[in-house]
Design a protein around this nucleic acid. Structure first.
Length: 290
DNA sequence: CTGTGTTCCTGTTCGC
DNA sequence: TGCGAACAGGAACACA
């Protein structure tokens, strides 16, 4: 499920339920996810108020009035389910909800519950001091946010200069741009008209200044992510499901998952192809992406 | 340091 | 319908 747009959608869904609220109780139902849960997790959270629910790349970050912060990652299959008092739980629309994968439950002062469900358990939760969060090992090496001013052609060129991996791998690397994943890398490269197989260093001249390709790629990334967040947000009308799945599945992609289908670009008569790069599927149009 | 492959785990889909 | 194989939105880690 979650690349940056989905995580942002989840954040917006959780915000009205969690932000400014005291957590009366936390249930931890197993010892670990991908990593062990924080030590004395339930005790450290109980009674604390969430002052802010933020996002950095694909991480959700809850800041508590205790001075600590909770960094959460959804992995591949993580989602949050919200139940409010007086409203009956609605069935999850996309995948079946299996209660045995409910690993953490937050009980708020309002009587609402926020349940973290994650079948594959690639997600994790880490608790740390709230100051100097940027210097936390999970966060300090992240590249710029795709929607921030720092993500521009000059940045891409600087990072890509001399790199021998391909554009797909370059964009998947969170140190270069933070928050892109397999889907939106494919989509951004399609929008930029660039082949995922092209070497990353094609974004920079020998002098390190951006090429025309970098000048195309930066706005393509920005627009791809902005559009996806907008699509996710529009699915949040009913935010009892803050799982991002609605936005994810409603959104139709230009190339991702469209192997064998005609390129959607009106002036192109190409066919979308699937290849494997770094062990992951890449979808692209060989005809209009070069 | 850079680039690549493996690994964690469960669920769904696809081909026979 | 059953059944194994392939595949799935991530990223830490080991290794060449």
């Amino acid at each position: 499920m979650p690349e940056l747009p989905e995580v942002e959608t989840v954040r917006r869904g959780l915000e009205p339920v969690l932000s400014g609220k005291r957590i009366d109780r936390l249930e931890q139902r197993r010892p670990d996810l991908r990593f062990p849960f924080p030590k004395r997790f339930a005790k450290r959270v109980a009674g604390c108020r969430i002052e802010q629910l933020a996002r950095r790349a694909k991480y959700l970050i809850a800041r508590f009035d205790s001075g600590e912060a909770l960094i959460m990652h959804l992995g591949m299959s993580g989602r949050y389910l919200i139940e409010k008092p007086g409203e009956e739980a609605k069935p999850v629309p996309v995948a079946t909800h299996r209660p045995q994968h409910d690993h953490v439950v937050f009980h708020t002062e309002d009587g609402a519950t926020v349940t973290y469900n994650d079948p594959r358990r690639f997600g994790f939760m880490v608790m740390c001091a709230g100051d100097d969060l940027d210097q936390h090992p999970l966060l300090r090496d992240l590249g710029p946010e795709p929607l921030g001013n720092a993500m521009n052609a000059a940045h891409l060129a600087k990072r890509a200069a001399g790199r021998k991996n391909d554009l797909k791998a370059f964009l998947m690397d969170q140190r270069n741009v933070a928050g892109l994943g397999n889907i939106y890398v494919c989509e951004a490269l399609f929008r930029a008209g660039l082949s995922p197989k092209r070497v990353a260093s094609c974004l920079a001249r020998r002098s390190g200044t951006p090429t025309v390709r970098a000048e195309r790629l930066a706005p393509a990334i920005r627009a791809t992510i902005a559009d996806a967040i907008a699509a996710g947000g529009s699915s949040l009308r009913d935010y009892r499901q803050a799982d991002g799945a609605l936005g994810y599945f409603q959104h139709s992609f230009s190339v991702y998952g469209r192997e064998g289908q005609a390129c959607i670009k009106p002036t192109c008569n190409g066919t979308v192809k699937r290849i494997v790069q770094s062990g992951r599927s890449t979808f692209y149009c060989p005809s209009c992406q070069s």
